[in-house]
């Protein structure tokens, strides 16, 4: 008897043959005594295995075994939590306070100009831009060293009447 026939018998016994294949095989089985003997063997093996799945006990105490499981769970949970980034105070000062300080100085200077009409002396102008309106003049000064930008708005009439200088 060839192996293919034996494998087909196995498929038949395991319910993996269906339809026409199954019918044809049943006919073959009915007339083949070798196949019938093999059938008894395969059924004996399946029956034996299903009745006697080997049993084993964990070779460690229950408490120890569970403590190892718990440790692994805690380890896995610890690895999934991302570490919080540390805050560098110097970085925070540089990034937040200095620009805010610059803005505060600019605002103060702007408000001073608007109240008095007099442009205070400004000695470290690096750049000058004019934006002319009909009655109001505007000048922009930028200090790179202090990271400050100042926009000067002034009354043209007053400016032409008073004497002031930029250095």
């Amino acid at each position: 008897m060839n192996q293919d026939l034996g494998i087909k018998l196995q498929a038949y016994l395991d319910g993996e043959l269906s339809g026409q294949d199954r019918v044809q095989f049943e006919a073959e089985l009915a007339r083949n005594s070798e196949l019938q003997a093999l059938r008894r063997e395969l059924e004996m093996v399946s029956g034996m295995l299903r009745e006697a799945d080997p049993v084993r006990t964990v070779p460690a105490s229950g408490d120890f075994y569970f403590s190892q499981i718990r440790r692994r769970i805690e380890q896995a949970e610890g690895e999934t939590r991302e570490p919080r980034p540390s805050i560098n105070l110097a970085d925070w000062l540089r990034r937040a306070l200095l620009p805010l300080g610059g803005v505060a100085v600019a605002l103060l200077m702007f408000m001073t100009t608007v109240r008095t009409g007099i442009t205070p002396g400004f000695t470290s102008a690096h750049e000058e831009t004019e934006a002319l309106l009909e009655e109001t003049g505007a000048m922009t000064f930028r200090s790179d060293s202090q990271s400050v930008t100042v926009v000067w708005l002034y009354d043209k009439e007053l400016a032409s009447a008073s004497a002031f200088e930029f250095e």
Binding site: D53, P54, V55, R56, T57, V58, P59, A60, G62, Y65, F66, I69
Partner: peptide, 23 residues
């Protein structure tokens, strides 16, 4: 775990045939 550890271990052992690996 206490109830079913032996069954799970037994299955692992039947496949691996090695106590350490099964544990």
């Amino acid at each position: 775990v206490a109830r079913h550890r032996d069954k799970i271990y037994a299955r692992a052992y039947s496949m691996m045939r090695n106590e350490e690996e099964a544990m």
